[in-house]
């Protein structure tokens, strides 16, 4: 451990700095994972949502069913969220 600290110090980087930088990278990764999957879910739900509203306008009984169909692509963002969580903790 002490050896590692001295070599890092020699290249003008402390161990704390490296750790903080790694933490930052992880946070970035988690953010990208959640953000991109969120956009993907949004695109997928866009078409389903508009079709769902149309179907509900024609027949109110299908509301429950189409609400569920609309949340099906949410799996994508949930995978992103899981990856994000695993990265951070």
């Amino acid at each position: 451990m002490a050896d590692a600290a001295t070599t890092v110090a020699a290249t003008e980087m402390t161990l704390e700095m490296v750790k903080a930088s790694q933490m930052g990278m992880k946070a970035l990764g988690a953010g990208i994972a959640v953000g991109l999957t969120g956009i993907a879910t949004g695109i997928a739900e866009m078409a389903i949502g508009s079709a769902a509203v149309g179907a509900t306008a024609e027949n109110k009984d299908v509301f429950g069913l189409v609400l569920l169909l609309t949340v099906i692509p949410e799996t994508i963002v949930i995978f992103g969220l899981v990856v994000g969580l695993l990265l951070l903790f």
Binding site: E74, T75, I78, F79, L81, V82, L85
Partner: peptide
């Protein structure tokens, strides 16, 4: 199976 991780994620 992985879909059940939503229980934790959400």
């Amino acid at each position: 199976v992985l879909s059940y991780t939503r229980l934790v994620g959400i």
